[in-house]
Structures are given as structure tokens and as C-alpha cells.
Amino acid sequence: MQEEATTLGAVDVLTPRTLEEALRLKSETPGAVPIQGGTDVMVELNFDRARPPALLNLNEVAALRGWSRTNGRVSLGAGLTYAEAMEHPLAELLPALAEAARTVGGPQIRNRGTVGGNLGTASPAGDALPPLLVAGAEVNVASVRGERTLPLHEFLVGPKRNALAEDELIVGVSVAAGAGRETFLKVGPRNAMVIAVVSLALRVVDGELLAAFGSAGPVPALVRAPLEEASSFPEQVAAAASPIDDVRGTAAYRRHALRILAGRALDRCLA
């Protein structure tokens, strides 16, 4: 292949080695798009849908990887992959997240896609989001100005929109672990590698029912009710949804399926 006669477009790649360096670069170049597993960002690049001035490659920032357990909460690094979320012993601590991870793409995607990426993209269909919502997730974000923590439902502000300031990065997310029973179910038109037509996570803890659904509203939303309302809970969940018709499914089907999923999830968690 011959050398290009002229230079190509102005995309730049910044590769920090530490979190501090990453925050500094993000502060200096707020338009830099963070890229971790690349499973969303690269599709935008490959199909010419985005030409950001810079990409902030977070792969080399060790502080974003892995997970830890402190004071009854589990902290997940933004760079935790779906494959890692399916591994023992994390899968036993957060079974719904592990079940959700198993529904994501194929093994190749689960080896690269990350929880932080799912939060950053903030898609209504993000598979990690419903399990995190029912687990009371708090998102840890940071910038050169400092760190802050905000509940996941406040972090997700709209379809593909989150509450990050332009100089902030997602550091991780922490959840209450090991409490109650939980499960995750996802409907897709084939038996592997699908974007959720509709999905649901349910957690039953301390006499309370918590459900969160995906692909049935502008953001994955949380529905809570006391355990005594279990029989009407599927209706409550369906009623809380505001689904639309799109290429993946109809609003009517999504609402219907949500009701079925909620009933089945209750059966599993109350059995």
C-alpha cells in the first residue's frame, strides 16, 4: 500500500497510563470521546457516523479495571468487562448482572465491552443498566475538579444521554451486593446476539420489589413496590413503561412482554 499523499482527518488518539493523566487529558480536550472496549465507539467510527476530534483510549488505565468489595458494597471498575461479570465469585454476588452479561453479544463482545461503556453510552437498551438499577447503583465520576457520586437513575438523563460534565470520566459503579434474590430476562428475536427488544431485572430485598426495564422507555427505569403488591406488580411494571414502535419491536408487544417477564421474574425470586 502506498503512502498517502496527504494527511487524513483530524482524529487524534490520546492514551493515558494513569487515571490522573486521563482526567487531565479529558479536561484539556473535552471533545475527546472515551473509548474502552470500543463496542459502541468503533461502530460509530467504522460507519462514518462520528469523527470526534480525539479519542481517549482508556485501555491502559489500570485503576479502571477489576472490582472490589467493601462494607457490603461491591465496586465495579468502569473497565470491568461483561466476561468478567460472568466469572466466579462476582457472578454469585451480582447474579442478575451476570445473567445480563451472558445476553450481551457473543464472547468477543463480552471480552471487550465494559460496564463503564454501557453507562457512558446510556442506551435505553443497555443490558447492564437494569441489574445495576435494582441493585441501587451509584456511579462514581471524576474530573480534575474532583470526584462525585450520583445514583444511577440520576446519571441516566435521556436516551443516550448521561449526566457527565464534559471534563468528567466514569470511574466505576458501586452496588449493594448479596442482598435478596434477583434475576434478569431479555427478549430478542433470536436466541443469541441481540439488542434487547425489552429486558427486565428484578430484585426482591427486605420486603421490597425492585424492577428495572430496558428498551421500554427513554431510559432504563426503576419501579418499586412493597412485597405485598407482588400480584399486581407485573401490571405496575408494564404501566410504568413508555415503549415505542421501532424496527426491533412494537410498543404493544414490549408492554405485553414486560408484564410476562415481570411475572416470571417474581416466580423465580419468590420461589
Binding site: E99, R102, T103, T183, F184, L185, K186, V187, G188, R190, N191, A192, V194, S199, L261, R264, R268
Partner: peptide, 9 residues
């Protein structure tokens, strides 16, 4: 039916 989606037992 539903495969990895874990939708039914």
C-alpha cells in the same frame, strides 16, 4: 426458546 435471554424456565 429465548436462548441466552433467560426468558423462561
Amino acid at each position: 426458546p429465548g436462548g441466552s435471554g433467560n426468558t423462561t424456565r
